Amino acid sequence: MKRLILAAALLAGALPAQARDSLGIWNDWGAFRDMGVPRCYAIAMAVPVVGKRIDFQGYLTVGTWPRKGTKGEVHVRLSRRLANDPQVVLTVNNQRFPLVAGPADAWTTDQRADAAIIAAMRSADNLVVMARGVDGRTFQDRYRLAGAASAMDAATLGCARA
């Protein structure tokens, strides 16, 4: 639970302080609502690996932004800075999804990819995001998916009337 609260704080770090409502915690996943934006999101932190070099705390979110008409947007904050012209691949249920990347973040290419990832997450145990760091070495951020479906559903319902 401490890891989820930290992840929620990291996600909101660049925004002014506002109240965020916890919609629930399910295993490694939590759901939160921020009506100041408004947005709702399910979030989990990457599984920690002892001795692994990280630049940032990695986390994965599935967000809903009612004013933008966006539901189920997948976003990954990677644990390392990325090489120039990065290639980031998310793998879940043996399905590979290329992501569009910034210096340390990645998103899907479109809403169909978001929907396909979310559908795969609902029946998987784990998810892996692989990329090449600024040092040229490949790294992986891993996520456990137990509780993800409940957190995603709570986040979607949390903004249903916003």
Rank of each mutant, 00 (worst) to 15 (best):
M1Q: 05
K2N: 12
A7V: 01
A7L: 01
A8P: 00
L10P: 01
L10C: 11
A12R: 08
A14H: 03
A14P: 00
A14D: 09
L15T: 04
D21L: 07
S22M: 14
S22P: 01
N27A: 14
N27G: 05
W29E: 07
W29H: 07
G30A: 15
F32Y: 15
F32N: 02
D34H: 01
V37D: 09
P38Y: 02
P38T: 12
R39G: 01
Y41P: 04
I43M: 02
M45C: 05
A46I: 01
V50W: 01
V50I: 06
V50Q: 09
V50G: 02
I54Y: 04
D55Y: 10
D55E: 09
Q57M: 11
T61G: 02
T61L: 15
V62F: 03
T64M: 13
P66R: 08
R67D: 12
K68F: 11
G69D: 13
G72T: 14
G72S: 08
V74E: 05
H75Y: 13
R77M: 10
S79M: 03
L82V: 08
L82Q: 08
A83C: 09
N84L: 12
N84Y: 06
P86N: 03
P86L: 09
Q87T: 08
Q87F: 04
T91W: 04
F97T: 11
P98N: 11
A101M: 06
A104Y: 07
A106T: 01
T108P: 15
Q111P: 12
Q111C: 08
Q111G: 13
R112Q: 10
A113T: 14
D114P: 09
A115W: 12
I117H: 12
I118G: 06
A119Y: 08
R122K: 15
A124L: 05
D125S: 15
N126F: 13
V129K: 10
V129S: 04
A131W: 02
A131D: 03
R132G: 03
R132I: 07
G133P: 13
R137K: 12
T138K: 06
F139Y: 12
Q140D: 04
D141I: 03
A148K: 02
A151V: 00
A155K: 02
A155Y: 02
T156H: 10
L157P: 01
R161Y: 05
R161D: 11
A162L: 14
